[in-house]
């Protein structure tokens, strides 16, 4: 179904989806993100790694303006998706989030049926004209999240009744159903067992064919397995950003080396 992934394979540097320049994030008086510059490649997996509290999740949440929902949070600098500044006044954050989907650390299916969970995005964005189209879209999304075969006979049962791994794939299906261009994943496997983790990782490999995936992870093995580019964050700074292969085999910064060899973190 998909090509076997080549960890750390070189990607075409010209195909840039997101560019971030001099991004600063403040929580009240705390300077959480300092001067982060990063270019995120389209149709590839970019991993953010780093110790807890280093700002990787905060930076991820800047990319779809989820930080707007936190009162004390302030973002400065420039983040462009396809050359368009997403913090521009004319940009509607609600519209932006439809384009930049997000999957969270803990599976958070809505207290609705499996079908309604997936149909939620398409319905609110008016993406379909009738029930038949919606049915088709839901099926495509569930197939895309490798969940269809497990749930096709019980689409009307509650999404919260699924297992943890299935719930997380349901949340991915839900994000995929709105047909985003970028998919942000905030430690999507941290609440899952190894088998469910493997399923979600397989899924990420297929998803990157369609759009760019940015994943925050605590597992360096996971970053090495699935990503093409890796960014290492430490104390709010972006320490190093390079091809995954380079980061894990030949890091240029001593802090990166210490982290991936387990000496800090």
């Amino acid at each position: 179904m998909y090509d076997a992934p080549t960890p750390g394979s070189k990607v075409d540097q010209t195909d840039i989806k997101i560019t971030a320049k001099k991004v600063q994030v403040y929580y009240g008086d705390t300077h959480a993100i300092k001067d982060v510059d990063v270019d995120i490649v389209d149709r590839a997996v970019t991993a953010f790694i780093g110790p807890s509290g280093c700002g990787k999740s905060t930076f991820l949440r800047c990319l779809n303006r989820m930080n707007d929902t936190i009162d004390v949070c302030r973002v400065e600098g420039e983040i462009k998706i396809d050359g368009e500044d997403i913090y521009d006044r004319r940009i509607d954050p609600v519209q932006l989030r439809a384009k930049v989907g997000m999957v969270f650390q803990k599976p958070n299916p809505f207290p609705k049926s499996i079908y309604d969970n997936v149909a939620y995005g398409p319905k609110i964005h008016g993406m379909v004209r009738n029930k038949a189209e919606l049915d088709e879209l839901v099926e495509t999304a569930l197939r895309g999240a490798a969940l269809w075969d497990e749930v096709k006979d019980r689409l009307q049962s509650p999404g919260t009744g699924l297992s943890g791994g299935q719930q997380q794939r349901l949340c991915i299906a839900r994000a995929v159903a709105t047909q985003p261009e970028v998919l942000l994943m905030d430690e999507p496997c941290s609440a899952l067992d190894p088998i469910a983790t493997a399923q979600v990782e397989d899924l990420i490999e297929t998803l990157k064919e369609q759009f760019s995936v940015v994943i925050v992870t605590h597992s360096m093995q996971q970053a090495a397995r699935i990503s093409q580019k890796t960014a290492f964050f430490h104390l709010g700074n972006l320490v190093e950003y390079d091809d995954t292969n380079t980061i894990f085999t030949n890091p240029s910064d001593s802090r990166t080396e210490s982290y991936i060899t387990g000496r800090i973190g």
């Binding site: 779809n64 989820m66 929902t69 609600v94 519209q95 932006l96 989030r97 439809a98 384009k99 989907g101 997000m102 999957v103 969270f104 803990k106 958070n108 299916p109 809505f110 207290p111 609705k112 939620y120 995005g121 609110i124 964005h125 949340c171 839900r174 994000a175 709105t178």
Partner: peptide, 26 residues
């Protein structure tokens, strides 16, 4: 749970859509 709201906002729902379709049913 805040996770419900985040999930809905993350899909590009507005505040009132989130309240009507996710928070209130829950």
């Amino acid at each position: 749970p805040q996770a419900m709201r985040d999930g809905s906002f993350g899909l590009g729902a507005t505040k009132s859509e989130t309240i009507r379709q996710v928070v209130l049913p829950a």
